[in-house]
C-alpha cells in the first residue's frame, strides 16, 4: 500500500536530542512523546503536523543517542514514514525493530520541500513528489529487515524463533 502525505522538511544531522529532548525521557507513552516531537528544532511542530504527514531530511538522520523514544515520538506525532538521504545506525535499527517505516533515498533533501505532497511505494521504493512532479528511488530494504517487518518487529520475530527452537 502506498504511503501518501504532506512533507515536513529538515536538514542534515537531525539528532535524537532534538527529535525528543531528554527531559521527556521519563515515559514510554508514544502519544505523550509525540507532543514533544522535534521540539528541539521546531517547538510548534506537534501542533502543526497532521496525521500521515511525512518527514523528509538530509543525511545522518537520528544521530546521537540510542533512545527508542525518538522513533516512538515520531510515530506518536502521527508521522507515517521518514525519508532521508541517510540514517544513523542505531536509529535505523530501532526504527525497524519497532515498526517505524523509513526509507533511504538519495536526492530527496534537495528535491523535496516542506508542504509538498509525496507518495512512497514501500515495495518498489518509488517516491513521487506530486507538487513538483519529481521522482526519487529509495534503496532496497535488506531481506533480513523485510523479514522483521513481515513478522511485526523484532520481538514477535525473536519469540517465534524461540518457540521453533524449543519445539525442536
Amino acid at each position: 500500500m502506498t504511503i501518501e502525505g504532506a512533507v515536513w522538511k529538515f536538514g542534515d544531522n537531525v539528532d535524537t536530542d532534538v527529535i525528543i529532548p531528554a527531559p521527556y525521557l521519563v515515559t514510554a507513552d508514544s502519544e505523550e512523546l509525540g507532543k514533544h516531537c522535534m521540539e528541539g528544532v521546531d517547538p510548534a511542530f506537534s501542533e502543526k503536523v497532521g496525521p500521515g504527514d511525512i518527514i523528509v531530511a538530509g543525511k545522518n538522520f537520528g544521530c546521537g543517542s540510542s533512545r527508542e523514544h525518538a522513533p516512538m515520538a515520531i510515530k506518536g506525532a502521527g508521522i507515517s514514514c521518514v525519508v532521508a538521504e541517510s540514517f544513523a545506525r542505531i536509529f535505523y535499527r530501532n526504527a525497524f525493530n519497532m515498526g517505524l517505516a523509513i526509507f533511504e533515498a538519495p536526492g530527496v533533501s534537495e528535491g523535496i520541500r516542506t508542504g509538498d505532497r509525496i507518495s512512497v511505494n514501500p515495495h518498489t521504493g518509488e517516491i513521487t513528489d506530486h507538487t513538483n512532479g519529481r521522482h526519487f528511488s529509495a534503496k532496497a530494504i535488506p531481506p533480513f529487515m523485510q523479514g522483521l517487518i513481515k513478522a511485526g518487529g523484532l520481538m514477535p520475530y525473536v519469540l517465534k524463533q524461540k518457540q521453533e527452537q524449543d519445539r525442536a
Binding site: S65, S66, E68, I90, R93, N94, L154, M155, L159, Q161
Partner: peptide
Amino acid sequence: ADSHTCTYGALGAFATGVGSTDVAAAMIT
C-alpha cells in the same frame, strides 16, 4: 541500550549501542 556502549572497545571488546527492543530480545535469547 545506550549509544556510548562502544566505550568497552577500549578493552579489546566488540561493544555497540542498540535500542531497548534489542536489549529485550537479548535478555531472552
